[in-house]
């Protein structure tokens, strides 16, 4: 049996939405190079709809696949929809991740939330802080 599912390998070998968006409406970066995972998400938002999304990831195969899948899952969706995306949903869409790689899907969820938070802050839109996890250290993803 291979380490990763076919879906993970597809999204890793042919990642969707790689790149950056100039003058993005929201940018979020989580993780750090010390831990070996960094995800950066760029959002283009119009009328509460995510018109475009791009990502850059430094990390393992499952981190790249999780970024790719998560961006696909929020593209064209409402902000509300994107905010409700869970790491579990990302992992399920990838047809599962090995237990020690689940943190990669957590990182994807948090990168999107971080980008949305940045959008709220840029536009002075009030938001519920409890919706956004503290991503200051890696430990909570690696429990």
């Amino acid at each position: 049996m291979a380490l990763y599912s076919e879906v993970v390998m597809d999204h890793f070998m042919n990642p969707r939405n790689v790149g950056i968006i100039e003058n993005a409406d929201g940018v979020g970066e989580v993780g750090n190079a010390k831990c070996g995972d960094i995800m950066k998400i760029y959002l283009k938002i119009e009328n509460d709809i995510i018109e475009d999304v791009k990502f850059e990831t430094f990390g393992c195969g499952s981190a790249i696949a999780s970024s790719s899948m998560a961006t696909e899952m929020i593209k064209g969706k409402s902000i509300e929809n994107a905010l409700s995306l869970t790491n579990k949903a990302v992992a399920e869409a990838l047809e599962g991740l090995p237990a020690h790689k689940m943190h990669c899907s957590v990182l994807a969820e948090e990168a999107i939330k971080s980008a949305l938070k940045n959008y709220y802050e840029k536009n002075n839109i009030p938001y519920d802080k409890s919706q956004f996890p503290d991503c200051e250290n890696c430990a909570h993803c690696h429990e």
Binding site: D37, F58, G59, C60, G61
Partner: peptide, 14 residues
């Protein structure tokens, strides 16, 4: 510099 080893191994494996 700038990349992570596991993804490098997976791509080389392919």
């Amino acid at each position: 510099e700038g990349i992570e080893g596991e993804s490098l191994l997976l791509m080389l494996d392919a």
